[in-house]
Design a protein around this nucleic acid. Structure first.
Lengths: 218, 218
DNA sequence: GGGGTCATGTAATAGGTTACATGATTCT
DNA sequence: AGAATCATGTAACCTATTACATGACCCC
């Protein structure tokens, strides 16, 4: 159902949205998206943008309006939204807002396979993640502050706030997970470690620094 | 940094993980992944699996061990994990657990562009999403219960619990968002509606049923 | 014993990312 | 005036998804 759209890349949604305000040429779109920080919410890369615009044109959602050339630069084709495009924009947005999608964040995959590491490694990694999450949250908060200070209405920052909320929930969860692994009475550590031929908590404290790709298991 | 791996599809991580327990042929992998419900955590599809196995072989992480044929069925090639593969599995997992990735869920994109809809449409959609989230959560809880009842250790369900926690945070956030839009004193509704040439709350109550792709804005 | 569905894999297509190319502008 | 960076786009390459193919097994 969700893949039935003629153009599925979310970048296209942003393009439709900007074109609904005024016609632009691809480079201008590119520039505007970056300047507005949309690249924090939508995966963006230069090459894909041109592709997406082509796809939109083929699908009849946008149409080349004029090609003008300025000096000796390459021609810039200005695209305008069509009625079908306006319709698609609304319909797509409604769909995304109203219906939660099944998504596949990499942390979920990692959690589902965490058993492949011994708990002596998993726990420090989770602690490290907590730190990183905290750093990221702090940065997002500063980001929000500065943008608000520039007078942008809060309505345009809700996606950042949402991210904050989700990251916070993740932190809470990871904290509780660490507890359930390490609790001296009921923790999963020992059973889990045994499966790897280890003990938990480990006798010799394991290395603390987390991502050390070279370290070998003994 | 994150795209530096020779094989980046997360399905490959699951393959490495299963092969670390015993050698299998692709179809067996496919079957095992489905049976263990890994397809809820990792995007899975038949075709991709074969591709991923090829990629892993090319990268030297797995190696064809034997090809046996049973009756007149096509040959099945059994793959085994190599040392490099075992190393990659550990390294990759460590990375995923320890470092939060920047990801792009579609709801974030939708939130960032929500202004393109008038609040009279956005609010019912958000309410509808809340319902769906609740349904999904209920189903996940049942799922967890039945699997636990089959004696599977809780450790193998943490990714479901994580999903629950995140969904719950999303629900909370969406609820608060609705409030901030509709609050009679300080809500963003009126300002936002005005931008669309409407009023908020709307005079004639807008249709309630959310995803109705055919309805036109008046 | 013929019609579905399972088992197993390959090939064609579409989608997305990276790399490349080239004139213009700006800086020193 | 040469170096660096911006502006703008195309092409080549990977990855992923869909569609196709075919023998085996199971049902009535």
């Amino acid at each position: 159902m969700a893949t039935k759209r003629k153009v599925s890349n979310l970048l296209a949604l942003a393009v439709l949205s900007y074109l609904s305000q005024r016609s632009m040429h691809p480079y201008e779109l590119s520039r505007t998206l970056r300047d507005n920080g949309d690249d924090r919410s939508i995966k963006f890369n230069h090459g894909s943008l041109y592709m997406v615009v082509q796809q939109l044109e083929k699908a009849g959602y946008v149409t080349a309006q004029e090609t003008n050339r300025e000096g000796q630069r390459p021609e810039r084709t200005v695209y305008a939204l069509t009625d079908a495009g306006r319709q698609e924009l609304r319909d797509w947005l409604r769909d995304l807002l109203g219906e939660p999608e099944q998504e596949y964040p990499s942390f979920v995959a990692a959690l589902s396979l965490i058993g492949a590491l011994p708990p002596s490694q998993a726990v420090p990694l989770l602690r490290h993640r907590l730190q990183r999450l905290a750093e990221r949250a702090a940065q997002t908060r500063r980001q929000i502050e500065t943008v608000l200070a520039q007078g942008v209405p809060e309505l345009f920052l809700i996606e950042e706030q949402y991210r904050l909320a989700v990251d916070e929930a993740e932190s809470t969860y990871v904290t509780s997970l660490i507890d359930r692994i390490t609790d001296p009475q009921t923790g999963w550590g020992p059973m889990w470690a045994q499966f790897h031929g280890e003990t938990f908590p480990p006798q010799a404290p394991p290395a603390q620094a987390p991502p050390d790709p070279e370290r070998q298991q003994t």
